[in-house]
Simulated assay, not measured.
Amino acid sequence: MEKCLVRKQAQEWLASFDTKIEEQREKIKKVISANETVSIFGAYNKDFYIYGDGIYRGGQAIYKQLQLTPPGKIKEELIDTGDTFKQISFEALNDYAGDYIFLDQSYGGKLDKENSMWTSMEAVKKDRVFDLDPKRFWPYDPISVLAQSEEIADLLVSKNQEK
């Protein structure tokens, strides 16, 4: 009897999760076209990273749940291969830059936002860069992924309403 109740509660929660994610997708569709791309960058310690749709930095929320489009190189080098992150040089960030960039700076990692390589990126010029709170975007359990999806959708909607 107790197993049936737990199973029923789990099924209800999953259905609620799916409904809430679909609501976030619909919100985003109103402000971002299907051909606009989204990147996740990280400055971690002294290194720079790009992230795919895995457990890191909101990748599950951004790419798997919200189904936002990665730039071609991120899709080819990470998502299609099953890799979740890749260390790259600062100079290579532009090769992976999407129309929108989500940026994680953690464990002493800092991106030089005054550097001309950074300021030359279209997403930076158009003020489409969002800083991620590492404490909020490191977890990848279902409750965290749902909260991240909602926050990402709200950030994108808010930014596009400023136009």
Rank of each mutant, 00 (worst) to 15 (best):
D95M: 08
K113W: 03
D127W: 10
P70I: 03
I88H: 01
D53T: 06
M117D: 09
T81W: 01
S158C: 05
V124I: 13
S39E: 10
D104T: 15
P70R: 03
E114K: 14
Y96H: 12
L5G: 00
Q11Y: 05
R128T: 03
M117S: 15
N94W: 02
D53Q: 10
A92Q: 12
P139C: 04
E23T: 12
G42S: 15
A153D: 01
L156P: 02
D104S: 14
I143V: 12
S106A: 15
S89N: 06
E114F: 00
S16C: 14
G109T: 04
K46P: 02
D47F: 07
F130D: 03
E122L: 11
K64H: 09
E114N: 13
E151T: 07
M121Y: 09
K159M: 14
L14K: 13
Q87W: 02
I101D: 09
M1W: 12
L93V: 09
Y107F: 07
K110I: 01
R57G: 01
M1C: 11
Y63W: 08
D95E: 09
V129N: 07
M1Q: 11
R7Y: 03
L66S: 00
N160V: 03
G82I: 02
T119R: 08
N35M: 05
S33H: 15
A15E: 15
L132G: 02
I55M: 12
A147L: 14
K8E: 11
S16Q: 14
P142G: 10
N35W: 08
A97V: 06
